[in-house]
């Protein structure tokens, strides 16, 4: 879509709060400086699930915002300390709330979100079956092939057009 359209808006809003010059050290730079490639892969994976708060809609892995960099540094530290993914995620949630999670936890206020797609699928398919049954019954009851009549009318009209 207007991917990037008025990212300007993002920059303006961001500048208003933090007035930071963006992207002095990009994530690539930090990663290049970090020693451990395994830890780095884990960091990338984790931070793709975490939302950058000051950005418009980016994860912590992709964002060059200052806070995202600080948080990557924190996460790196925790990985080094041997913390589990869950502990790291809990650390983030304790500070910024569920908002930082791109994969919302399954809980009361997200029940509909997680059950929704399955419910929609079941609803859709059962509505489909119900419709087919009802339709078959109605078509049988109508017996008089109104549709054939209609079809021939349409055919006639189209033929007329073709001949024009």
């Amino acid at each position: 879509m207007k991917r990037l359209f008025a990212k300007l808006a993002a920059i303006l809003a961001f500048g208003l709060y933090l007035n930071a010059t963006p992207a002095l050290a990009s994530s690539a730079t930090e990663a290049a400086l970090a020693a451990d490639p395994v830890a780095e892969k884990r960091l990338t994976k984790l931070s793709e699930e975490l939302r950058c708060l000051v950005c418009q809609n980016q994860n912590i892995a992709d964002s060059n915002a200052e806070l995202a960099q600080d948080l990557r540094r924190e996460i790196r530290g925790m990985i080094k300390e041997g913390k589990s993914d869950k502990e790291i995620i809990d650390f983030m949630v304790a500070r910024y709330g569920d908002f930082v999670l791109y994969r919302p936890p399954v809980q009361g206020n997200t029940l509909l979100l997680w059950v929704g797609p399955i419910a929609l699928l079941i609803f859709g398919l059962s509505a489909l079956i119900a419709y087919q049954r009802r339709r078959a019954a109605r078509v049988a009851a109508e017996d008089k092939p109104l549709s054939a009549d209609e079809a021939s009318r349409a055919d006639a009209l189209l033929k007329e057009l073709d001949n024009k």
Partner: peptide, 13 residues
């Protein structure tokens, strides 16, 4: 270094 800021969940000064 902003560590206390992180503990307080600071994201927009």
């Amino acid at each position: 270094d902003g560590r206390v800021g992180i503990d307080y969940g600071v994201y927009g000064v």
